[in-house]
Design a binder for these strands. Structure first.
Length: 155
DNA sequence: GCCAACGTTGGC
DNA sequence: GCCAACGTTGGC
């Protein structure tokens, strides 16, 4: 039984269009222990992903994706030139993980404001006050409610 | 650019 | 182990 997740990405770095073009992208740059632990402990190939655009003019869900592989050490932590470089990490003792995400389809944009307006989505962790996690779990009910909302006209 | 909210760091 | 300071996230 696949689990469901919401993953935030800044479209300037990796948008749903970029994922569509690439097919599969490694999800690098996660530097939060809770989010890393989701990858390490709970994410499995085949899990569903709500692809969310953050830190942009129109934040919201922009498409669907799927976890494509098991997590592996995040390559950017070893790269001194990367903004995600992690001096504490070594090849023997990596600190951060990346996971491959496969494009499924684009959707209409489900804006954050509309998500907040919909009572059936009120439990979503991404909407919780002060949430800053870039990866959050999505329940079966929430997943179905988002798909239903995406199928409706904007509003 | 502002700022609330939060996670992480590091001194003690 | 506490907690203040700091840095980051991310919507607005």
């Amino acid at each position: 039984m696949p689990r469901h997740w919401l993953m935030k990405s800044e479209p300037d770095e990796a948008s749903i269009e970029d994922l569509c073009a690439a097919g599969v992208l490694p999800w690098t740059g996660v530097r939060n222990f809770q989010a890393r632990n989701f990858m390490r402990d709970d994410m499995h190939p085949g899990d569903d992903v709500l692809f969310y655009h953050s830190s942009c003019a129109e934040p919201g869900i922009a498409g669907l994706a799927r976890i494509d592989a098991l997590p592996v050490p995040d390559e950017t932590q070893f790269d001194p030139a990367s903004r995600y470089h992690e001096p504490r990490a070594t090849r023997d003792r990596p600190l951060w993980l990346q996971i491959d995400v496969r494009f499924v389809r684009r959707t209409r944009l489900l804006p954050l404001a509309e998500m907040r307006r919909r009572p059936e989505l009120a439990t979503m962790r991404v909407l919780a006050r002060g949430n800053r996690l870039s990866i959050t779990p999505v329940t079966d009910d929430e997943w179905l409610a988002v798909l239903a909302a995406l199928a409706e006209a904007p509003g």
